[in-house]
């Protein structure tokens, strides 16, 4: 007899009751919801599931109705309209039923539902840890020589062994060094403008002596060299891709104004001893203007367009 109590039948039905109580509430999208008749909220409901089986997935306090939850053309959904007061909800002609319990006379406590309904257990299969290369792939020869894993600065004790912490410090130094490079670069531009102006005034016969032009040129060359040296010894950046950017342009222009900065003073010295003074001076003057122009463009390319 089926209704005869045996240990097998009892354990079977106990198992069934256990599964129904434990399994169903947690299966699929459906999770146990809490209803509490003490709370009176205005709320918006969101739904999942087919028309025959509605499950509340979310609500928001103090939202006015009607508000479309699903729009047309999405699965079984269609435009929904609500008419409701705090304790009377109807959706088309469907009762809002969950686990056989009507919520028509119930309201929902937001905080508790939110926690239970949106528990996020997703994880990435493999969460990478900090495996970022400490030095850029396209490290320059000078950077490698000075700041590489076995670079000169590590050997002579200016910096320590290459670690993540040390590299962070070096990136901080890089910022300071490049700020100084920028500062000396701006100072150099001012000095260079002064040198060009005084040189022009000398050639125009408006100065008694070229001594202040020479003095300013020496200062310009000193400031320029210091600025350039700072750029050369700066630690490598975090990354350097193969691209042509404003920095690439700045560096390309640097080679050109460097050549100009070597040639112009040398031509200035040679002008003094030249048999055709004015011809040599004019050449020196033009080279000075070209160098100053390239230097200005190089500076602006970084200041404005970087």
């Amino acid at each position: 007899m089926f209704f005869e109590f045996t240990h097998k039948k009892v354990s079977f039905w106990l198992l069934m009751v256990f599964i129904i109580l434990v399994y169903f509430p947690f299966s699929g999208n459906t999770k146990p919801y809490s209803f509490n008749q003490m709370y009176q909220f205005d709320f918006t409901l969101g739904f999942k599931g087919s028309n025959d089986e509605k499950h509340i997935i979310g609500f928001e306090q103090n939202k006015s109705f009607p508000e479309p939850i699903f729009k047309k053309g999405f699965g079984n959904s269609k435009d929904y309209s609500f008419s409701t007061t705090n304790s009377n909800i109807s959706y088309d002609n469907y009762s809002l039923v969950l686990f056989g319990k009507s919520i028509l006379q119930d309201t929902v406590k937001k905080e508790k539902l939110s926690e239970e309904m949106f528990e996020n257990l997703l994880e990435f299969d493999f969460e990478e840890t900090a495996k970022i290369p400490l030095l850029p792939q396209n490290i320059s020869f000078m950077e490698k020589l000075l700041w590489g894993e076995s670079g000169l600065f590590r050997k002579i004790g200016i910096t320590a062994e290459l670690t993540a912490e040390q590299r962070e410090k070096e990136l901080g130094w890089r910022k300071t060094i490049l700020t100084l490079h920028q500062g000396f670069g701006l100072l150099t531009w001012g000095l260079m403008a002064g040198s060009v102006t005084l040189g022009q005034l000398w050639l125009d016969g408006k100065l008694d002596s070229p001594i202040w032009h020479r003095r300013l040129v020496y200062t310009t060359v000193g400031s320029y060299s210091l600025s350039g040296l700072l750029a050369i010894v700066a630690p490598p950046p975090f990354e350097r891709r193969e691209e042509f950017s404003t920095i690439s342009f700045h560096k390309l222009a640097a080679w050109l104004h460097f050549a100009g900065m070597v040639a112009t003073p040398v031509l200035g010295i040679l002008t003094k001893e030249s048999s055709d003074y004015f011809r040599s001076a004019r050449f020196h003057q033009r080279l000075g203007y070209v160098t100053f122009s390239i230097y200005t463009i190089a500076m602006l390319s970084v200041l404005i367009f970087s």
């Binding site: 900090a130 970022i132 400490l134 850029p136 993540a164 590299r167 962070e168 990136l171 901080g172 890089r174 910022k175 950046p237 975090f238 990354e239 350097r240 891709r241 691209e243 950017s245 404003t246 920095i247 970087s306």
Partner: peptide, 15 residues
């Protein structure tokens, strides 16, 4: 601009 990106990485401490 990798130089600008490097500067950004400094600011957000990407290491």
């Amino acid at each position: 601009n990798s130089n600008r990106d490097s500067e950004a990485m400094n600011l957000i401490e990407a290491i």
